[in-house]
């Protein structure tokens, strides 16, 4: 089963997000991550959902989403060239001995330290899901206290090839 990144434009109205989420739960579709925010148009919100499923299931998901009256556009970015980012905040246990090593790791991943205390530091990282996963793996041995991830946001690339 392949992971699909589905970008949805939906009327920015009362209950609209609920319709989308409700559709996934009512029909037993899987949600790996979901992120929501306004789009370039105030009256429209962009919802990015990462879902796992066979091609048949993904096809149904897209058709069912399209059927929602409030949904104005649905794109499965998976087969397109697209940019994706996820933001994560990671609070890691840190002391005098480990702090500098943690800062090095943070630098390698081009992330930022946004909070520091005698017993912990909090790192803000953005990147692809794989990058975030790799970073979490590197930090794990130090003792991760808390993680907050936004879920994937994505947009289609304008030009073919990587920019």
């Amino acid at each position: 089963m392949k992971k699909h990144t589905i970008s949805i434009l939906v009327e920015n109205k009362f209950g609209a997000l609920n319709r989308i989420v409700g559709l996934f739960s009512a029909r037993g579709y899987n949600i790996d991550s979901i992120s929501v925010g306004t789009s370039e148009d105030d009256s429209v919100a962009r919802v990015t959902i990462v879902s796992k499923g066979d091609d048949d299931v993904i096809e149904q998901i897209i058709k069912q989403l399209n059927k929602l009256i409030d949904v104005t556009k649905v794109v499965d970015l998976t087969y397109d060239n697209f940019v994706e980012r996820e933001l994560v905040l990671i609070k890691v246990a840190a002391n005098r001995n480990s702090r500098s090593e943690l800062m090095q790791i943070s630098e390698i991943f081009r992330s930022k330290i946004i909070d520091i205390s005698p017993r912990s530091i909090t790192i803000e990282a953005t990147g692809s899901e794989q990058k975030v996963d790799a970073m979490i793996k590197m930090l794990d041995p130090f003792g991760i206290k808390e993680i907050a991830r936004t879920g994937r946001v994505a947009l289609k690339r304008e030009f073919e090839g990587t920019v």
């Binding site: 209950g15 609920n18 319709r19 409700g22 009512a26 929602l68 009256i69 409030d70």
Partner: peptide, 11 residues
């Protein structure tokens, strides 16, 4: 009723 009927209405 909007929440209750969301999944059983066209809209």
């Amino acid at each position: 009723i909007i929440g209750i009927t969301r999944s059983i209405t066209k809209h």
